[in-house]
Design a protein around this nucleic acid. Structure first.
Lengths: 256, 256
DNA sequence: ATTTTAGATTCCGTTTTGTGGAATTGAATC
DNA sequence: GATTCAATTCCACAAAACGGAATCTAAAAT
């Protein structure tokens, strides 16, 4: 896990600030003491940060516990909508969900992880209650693998070095060589498949959204329960549908 | 506009950090120079903050321009879902949207402004493209007025002093006394109505969600085009429906 | 190809600002 | 009313942020 040693010329209090915000998120709210224990900081310091955060509206205080505030909702909402990508991709994802009667989603790569940017569920689609903004390792999902396969080799190595291959189910890919081989196949085929690799009993097909200049915007995946997502449907029927829709999207997107 | 003089014991760099984040949001991305001009900071300082933000993944750099990063999406998503309120209120809002065939939403008060926390649109419902997390003055909407009416008098004064009465349409309430009188009526009646006060041609009914201890969680509103939202429907039919649903919700919510 | 220029980035001595231990306040619990 | 545990405030000191100036980079102009 090589970490950038670019820790020079950076504002330390800002780093701490984010540490606190992130811990507050992980602990789902906390008191001063809990936080200072977790971060190994004196309570006075912790308190000063919380006070600052509170005054700015980024943290709320509810009977002694501090919680992340609604202001993050504001910024988060902005980020989601500001991405032209999202606005554009929406109809495509929706159509896929409707036509397949499964769930469809769009994910983007950010700092080596996959981020759920948009999701559409049809009536019968699985509702894996994936939060928008949720991050997870790229090797665990078809969309993630599709993205990974289309990054420069060097980038792939970096990401794998940095994040490793955390396991979520017994089917998760464990071996780096195995993954690299599969990525090669995905590159040739143009799409990826995942069978219970992220969640047991859930399969998916995913394909990259690549712009004309070769940039990978992200990936679209169709996700469903294993009993429906199998056999010919999974390997013959859905991939062309997905690739067709993505192609359509890319054409529209480029000359706008 | 009295501002807290509690600027003591607070971390200055954190304040600046958020200034930068917020400016980045307002400008929808900016270069170092643009930012330092806007904030009247030396470029070196501005740059240091951006570098920090970037290193943490909260800001992305795309050909010289800095933009808020997807990590805010992550936190924003957390905040939305972490609120037990939201999870609980969802079904109620959805039912209202379906039964009335209009749009319904849930808003909360935060620092004197209304924040859209959740919204559900039915087929024929207006789609006022309100972003979740969007903030606006309380006096402009029925939900906002419903919340305002149920805050302690002192709090109301504070909020009005602080935010004033910005106008959005010719129908927006302009006069403080007029507003206070209306709030009094709302308190008695139990619900509020807004006619083109926020957006021309859009009316709404809103009512507060109050817990048994008197705390106001927020308000639910039913929003629709003026031509459908008028006459008896607006004043006789919808209010009892709304109040009934909210009452149902509060009962469920309290013993859980 | 060469120069010019505007902006991004790094450097470094100065001084402001954050730090954390200790003191104080507040609010539960016995 | 006393006790205890956590939140909050205080303050002298050390560390870290500051910002002006130097440097680097890349694009525009000649």
């Amino acid at each position: 896990m090589p970490v950038n040693d670019d820790t020079a010329g950076v504002i330390k209090s800002a780093d701490r600030l984010f540490q606190i915000v992130e811990t507050l998120k992980d602990l789902d709210g906390a008191t001063v003491t809990e936080l200072s224990d977790h971060l190994d900081l004196p309570p006075s310091t912790t308190h000063r940060y919380l006070k600052t955060l509170h005054q700015q509206g980024y943290v709320d205080k509810r009977n002694g516990e501090y919680h992340l505030g609604l202001k993050f909702l504001d910024i988060g909402g902005y980020v989601r909508h500001s991405k032209p990508v999202r606005r554009e991709i929406k109809p495509t994802v929706r159509e896929l969900a409707q036509e397949t009667n499964e769930a469809a989603s769009f994910i983007m790569e950010h700092r080596g992880l996959g981020v759920f940017v948009y999701r559409e569920t049809s009536e019968s689609g699985v509702n894996t209650e994936v939060r928008l903004g949720k991050r997870s390792s790229l090797h665990l999902s078809s969309g993630g693998k599709a993205i990974l396969a289309n990054l420069p080799e060097e980038r792939i190595e970096d990401i794998l070095d940095h994040h490793g291959l955390p396991q979520k189910t017994t089917q998760s890919i464990q071996d780096r060589e195995e993954l690299l081989t599969e990525l090669e196949e995905i590159r040739e085929r143009g799409y990826a498949i995942a069978r219970s690799e992220h969640t047991d009993g859930v399969n998916s097909v995913g394909a990259p959204v690549r712009l004309s200049d070769g940039t990978v915007l992200g990936a679209i995946t169709i996700v469903g329960p294993a009993f429906r997502m199998q056999g010919e449907r999974l390997t013959e029927e859905l991939p062309p549908l997905l690739l067709g829709k993505i192609n359509e999207f890319v054409l529209n997107f480029s000359h706008s």
